[in-house]
């Protein structure tokens, strides 16, 4: 019985939801559309509530670090928990409009924005060193990749046109035509992959996303 509740019912529920979504699209049955709409709203609510899941998990891990006084780590973990608790407290003071709190807004405006952009941009350094260390024309495959990449880069930078007036023309060809077969292939292959994945899920053969491998 436990196995039925833990696994079989879940597979059946997933398959039912998949079928409702597909039927809703291809057949105009008002009752099915109503159920499909409600299920989509439920999915949104579940996703919204799950947003804080990452926070709970990470705070759990860092609390363990603090409790155990993990060398070289625990004070950073304590700092993380403090910031989390402090900002949460500020935000909860007016949950409808947290930014009405000037301290919350200040932290958001000057720390969050700056750090967000800084972290996102850090890969700029790595892509530059990767260009130097990894992009070698070792064979035809790598040479084609490099040629297309360099022309697109030179087209993207206005200076390309200054170097040679034909560079933007060639770069644009790579961007608008040259890459299309590959990108189109990715779309087609991914679409077939999604369909296959969907049918496997319908049949209860695809189970990785339930976390079965991880335990429970």
């Amino acid at each position: 019985m436990a196995e039925v509740v833990r696994r079989e019912l879940v597979y059946i529920l997933t398959a039912i939801v998949v079928i409702i979504m597909i039927v809703d699209f291809f057949f105009a049955v008002p009752a099915v559309s109503a159920v499909a709409g409600e299920l989509r709203t439920w999915a949104t609510i579940i996703s919204t509530m799950a947003l804080a899941l990452g926070a709970v998990n990470i705070i759990r891990v860092h609390s363990r670090n603090v409790r155990r006084r993990t060398p070289g780590v625990w004070y950073h973990s304590a700092w993380l928990i403090f910031i989390f608790a402090f900002v949460m407290l500020l935000g909860m003071l007016d949950i409808n409009n947290p930014a009405s709190n000037p301290i919350y807004k200040w932290i958001f405006d000057y720390s969050y924005v700056s750090l967000g952009q800084t972290w996102y941009a850090i890969t700029g350094f790595y892509i530059a060193s990767a260009a130097y260390r990894a992009f070698r024309a070792r064979n035809v495959d790598a040479a084609l990749l490099l040629i297309a990449g360099i022309f697109v880069m030179l087209m993207n930078a206005p200076i390309g046109e200054v170097i040679w007036v034909q560079i933007p023309v060639i770069g644009r060809w790579f961007n608008d035509v040259g890459q299309v077969p590959a990108m189109r292939t990715f779309l087609i292959v991914a679409a077939f992959g999604l369909l296959a994945f969907g049918f496997r899920t319908l049949l209860g053969r695809e189970r990785g996303f339930y976390g079965e491998v991880a335990g429970g």
Binding site: G124, Y132, F135, R136, A137, L146, M153, A157, P158
Partner: peptide, 23 residues
């Protein structure tokens, strides 16, 4: 921003070319 792109892109391209000549 596109002005700054000029110098950074040149650096990346020069880096790729130099690395390949060296290779």
């Amino acid at each position: 921003t596109m002005d700054a792109i000029n110098t950074s892109h040149l650096l990346v391209i020069v880096a790729v070319i130099l690395a390949n000549i060296g290779y």
